[in-house]
Design a protein around this nucleic acid. Structure first.
Length: 425
RNA sequence: GACCCCAUCGUCUAGCCUGGUUAGGACACAAGCUUUUCAAGCUUGCAGCGCGGGUUCAAAUCCCGCUGGGGUCGCCA
């Protein structure tokens, strides 16, 4: 029976590296028909906090990584103490005050890592290992070994940073007379500067990405690509397809640098291919948070707006920024826009356009375009002469979707009002 | 510093195991097409096997060394 676990410590938010470790564990379990255990390593009473635990569970769910079993080490202290006692009786460990310490055997050991192959260590270089601390709580390595053994974990898939913990833990298994699991050490994810991933080099918490408007499918897909490849030049792959193709042996051995640019590109791909209704639903909380939308809103109108921006919003937040004019009553112009409007010299022509548009009864893409084209022709202008200043007036921006689609969305009343602008005021 | 691990375009990677490829794809970048702007899309371009030795008819691929990078060295996890 294949059984793996992800063992986060609730001393901080779930970060991107942890999320990837969880993802690979989950994938391995699913690919092998095994099960996935979530084990909360909250032995550090000082630093473990419930809010972090809540956040980790939420992030896991958001990413779509369901677990079969959940444990908390803080509820298992008796078990660790019991095993430590046994080691003392067997003469493999000794007391130092309240603490229990393992006498480190001296030997050459070989570890076969599923990703790296054979790794050898000399435990003579290791110091005796603390198993139970003076406060009677277990140390990481001890709790980890006891739990992995008791929970029947068959494969330990974890970050590279644990590779040097492995020989110590192997010695604990040996002292306990228990069979160790198979190991696979994942290379770490690094920041854009090649160093450790940190807040300085970008967002590290999964919730930060959520807040920044990334969708879970894209994040998971990107994380998958960091250290693994489905082959056949495929970039976009969902969890279901990944399960079919996943092989732990194909995981890269070298660390990978996190690229926000590529994640953003993937996010844009997912957003473009979503159905507009589903995308709209995702957008609603972002819009409400900004006060752009109240509890009650016109879903149809919103969905139409979303469609117009679907290929123009790499992240959900981008929609809020780029389509803000649809939700605001009045828009503020930047100095740049004010200047460009003044330089366009189209005040008179725009007032002609405005007057003609105001006579329209049906304010649609087709009708506004017809009027616009007529006015341009009558005044002997190029379309571009009016398109740009009108867009600025309606949206407060120099860029955006097609002007007539925009007009139809903004609606007659607001369009007429925004076209009434004192260029030299 | 000691110990362990790693090394293909700027970045993520395919290829390596089972030597023979014009070393493939993607992001980014550049150009073009399209166009009312911006995106999207399509086309094209730029760019890589860290270095040095072997082994071999032949090395990105196998071996050794160097260099470079990463990780660990807590009664944190």
């Amino acid at each position: 029976m294949i059984k793996v676990r992800f063992a986060p410590s609730p001393t901080g938010y779930l970060h991107i590296g942890g999320a990837r470790t969880a993802l690979f564990n989950w994938l391995y379990a699913r690919a092998q028909g095994g099960s996935f255990v979530l084990r909360i390593e909250d032995t550090d009473q000082e630093r473990s906090k419930d809010i972090y635990l809540e956040e980790i569970l939420q992030s896991m769910k958001w990413l779509g990584l369901q677990w079969e079993e959940l444990y908390k080490q803080s509820e298992r202290f008796d078990i660790y103490l019991e095993y430590a006692q046994k080691l003392i009786q067997d003469g493999r460990a000794y007391r130092d005050g309240e603490a229990v310490i393992l006498s480190m055997p001296q030997q050459e050991i070989k570890l076969y890592d599923l990703i790296r192959g054979e790794i050898s260590f000399d435990t003579a270089l290791l110091k005796d290992e603390v198993l139970i601390k003076s406060d009677k709580s277990p140390t990481y390595s001890f709790a980890c070994v006891v739990d992995d053994a008791l929970m029947g974990i068959s494969h330990v898939i974890r970050g590279d940073d644990h590779i040097s913990n492995t020989p110590k833990q192997l010695m604990i298994y040996q002292a306990l007379g228990l069979k160790p699991p198979k190991y696979a050490h994942l290379p770490l994810i690094m920041g854009e500067d090649g160093g450790r991933l940190s807040k300085r080099t970008g967002a590290v918490a999964v919730t930060d990405y959520k807040r920044q408007g990334f969708i879970p499918e894209a994040l998971v897909n990107y994380l998958l690509l960091l250290g693994w490849s489905p082959g056949n030049n495929q970039e976009k792959i969902d969890l279901k397809a990944a399960i079919k193709k996943f092989s732990i042996k194909q995981v890269q051995k070298s660390p990978a640098i996190f690229s926000l640019e590529k994640l953003t590109w993937l996010n844009a791909q997912y957003i473009k291919q979503m159905d507009a209704g589903g995308l709209t639903e995702l957008l609603v909380p972002f819009l409400q948070e900004r006060g752009f939308l109240s509890e009650v809103y016109d879903g149809k109108m919103l969905e139409n707006s979303v469609k117009l921006y679907q290929s123009r919003m790499p992240t959900l937040v981008d929609f809020c920024d780029r389509a803000d004019f649809l939700f605001k009553d009045r828009i503020d112009f930047s100095d740049e826009i004010v200047l460009k409007l003044k330089e366009s010299g189209q005040e008179q022509n725009i007032s002609v356009l405005r007057e003609r548009l105001s006579r329209l009864s049906e304010f649609s893409l087709e009708s506004t375009e017809k009027i616009f084209r007529d006015v341009v022709a009558e005044l002997g202008l190029e379309s571009a002469d009016l398109v740009h200043p009108v867009r600025m007036l309606l949206t407060g921006k120099t860029i955006g979707p097609g002007l007539f689609e925009t007009m139809a969305l903004v609606g007659k009343e607001k369009t007429i009002r925004r076209l009434n602008y004192q260029f030299n005021a």
